[in-house]
Design a protein around this nucleic acid. Structure first.
Lengths: 342, 342
DNA sequence: TTGTATGCGTTATCAA
DNA sequence: TTGATAACGCATACAA
């Protein structure tokens, strides 16, 4: 902050442009000059002002991540850390920094673009499909500004990364069928949500392909929390022909269902199998432990970052999209139906 | 990025210094000029370059948070989101931004200071007592650079915020005694760790004040994870005179202990009471649910941010420290000893 | 291989 | 109340 390129130039008896070239390791500066200047920089404890550098180079070396506290509550909350760390792991070695921006404080969704993008604060933006809308995309595109979405976005061509939610639905449902369960209900998620549609589509497809058929009344929609899981499970299990297994939208839903089943004296596994999306935050710690679909959120962040950097470096690249795979972790809650009954 | 203050000046037929004054709402510009210039800024979709502003004002309007992935694993991981959101909640209205920096990538712990502080990237730093050391503090102080630590730091006077860990130890232990338990073991944490010392001190003090006495062999040290909880509980419960309750360093330790007890057929609560630090990530979801000490990490982040901003605004303020209180959440795992036995 | 001059987009200091 | 001009700290085209 104190000592500038000017001071170094004076001390080394060279022009400040020479110092600048040493800073950037220009090949047209003699090795001995470089060594001498560098020595002086060390002695004087010089660190270039990143702000001045950025102004001169017209590049911020900073990428932004935009999120919305109000909308993404319990759901993204637990994954936030992993995503951030994933992003950091790829941008940090490239000398980029990460600036966190929160949508909630913004008056309008477009003002955040002024504040972040137009002001030249960041070189690229990572956001997600919940925040994104066509108007934002149009603005971003008109500015030729690189961005990627975490989460599939379909109404306009943009670059996005997502987990294959349909595949996840197939894996969870298929696993239950393979364990001998045959009447699978699906609990959680709102009809309009894209993530629900995808997951539910995989669930439905698996049932149909297995020749079991799909029943509308086996799907319970709603905000995916413990209460929904509890109420839905109570209702389903007390009905005339209760299902023998659940696919749950997340850990909280699954826990609610678990609670209801235990309260009704329904055996898990055996009478009832429960499988859930997400391993985090507590699938391994319930009683019994839950079979879950592990989503590597570190990798999600890292991939988003890699994609963004690529778009920053090659602005003319067409938008690309990528589906990542998740991993089934089998635990006690879905053990073989017959074995469970023994 | 495209249109600059110069363009506005030309379009409005004024000097760019006038435009600058309008931007900063200077009282010495006539209202009609202001109105006219602002109108033109709207029309031309002008947003000032934050980098140029920062260079001219010599202020980055950015604060940094430094963390270390390698050291802070499962422990801080779950709290990260809340801390960030807490920080954002106070700095965002003040037009500050948050830059995340990861220590892991740095060659030395001091180079991060070069990269972040000397380069003028940030106006203040939030870090924690694990990362901090006397050398860093000395460097920061010699630069008159504002920073605060999340976590108590004692060897040198610095500003810090922390939860009252000793109080936490007292609350958890006192609660167990009040519920009729009398032989309390403490599981988790390394001898050298400050956080362990504080919590353990509260535990010990409570025992002594209750006239129960403190036994060295009732404390099990080690990395606070599920395995430690499991192994320690197995050993303790199978000893000649097993303790009748545990205070655990975190949810993972508590879960391990829970598992061991269930495996040995020890009833919880009743034969054994378990209380744990932290409510997150899964105290309410174990079987039985765990009595826990809730730590409001949002407030921790917010308070750290407020303190930092204050230090930025008033650099001559002496360093201050603050202990926050946590909250006991009573659940089934520590129900009255006799009641539990019925 | 090095130095000179100018620009990056603002703010700030004086004059006018 | 406004304008001209010099910073802010570095990069770069062009000269030397």
């Amino acid at each position: 902050m104190k000592v500038t390129i000017q001071d170094i130039a004076k001390a080394a008896n060279v022009a400040k442009s020479t110092v600048s070239k040493v800073l950037n390791d220009s090949p047209r500066i003699s090795d001995e000059t470089k060594a001498r200047v560098r020595e002086i920089m060390k002695q004087m404890n010089y660190t270039p002002s990143s702000i001045a550098t950025r102004l001169a180079k017209r590049k911020s070396h900073n990428i932004g991540i935009l999120f919305d506290i109000s909308k993404e509550n319990e759901n993204t909350n637990p994954f936030f850390y992993n995503i951030i760390v994933g992003i950091e792991s790829v941008i940090s070695p490239l000398k980029y920094e990460l600036t966190i921006a929160n949508l909630q404080q913004e008056a309008t969704e477009l003002s955040v673009i002024d504040r972040l993008v137009r002001s030249g604060r960041i070189d690229g933006l990572i956001t997600n499909s919940i925040i994104l809308n066509d108007e934002m995309i149009e603005t971003l595109n008109s500015l030729d500004f690189p961005f990627v979405s975490m989460g599939e976005y379909l109404s306009t061509p943009v670059s996005w990364i997502d987990y294959d939610n349909a595949e996840g639905g197939r894996m969870l449902t298929g696993h239950l069928l393979a364990e001998g369960y045959s009447d699978v209900a699906f609990i959680g998620g709102e009809r309009g949500e894209d993530i629900f549609s995808k997951r539910h589509q995989g669930y439905r497809q698996t049932l149909l392909e297995a020749g079991i058929g799909y029943r509308e009344d086996r799907t319970i929609n709603g905000v995916a929390d413990e209460n929904l899981g509890y109420q839905s499970a109570l209702e389903l299990l007390q009905s005339h022909h209760p299902p023998d297994s659940f696919v749950c939208m997340n850990n909280y839903v699954a826990f609610g269902a678990l609670k209801a089943a235990q309260q009704l004296g329904v055996a898990i596994p055996g009478q009832l199998g429960i499988a859930t999306f997400d391993d985090y935050p507590f699938s391994p710690y319930t009683h019994p432990p839950l079979t879950s679909l592990f989503i590597d959120t570190f990798e999600l962040g890292a991939t988003a970052a890699r994609t963004l950097i690529e778009r920053i470096d090659k602005p003319d690249l067409p938008s690309s999209s990528l589906l990542l795979h998740s991993k089934l972790i089998v635990r006690e809650s879905t053990l073989n139906k017959k074995a469970g009954l023994e």
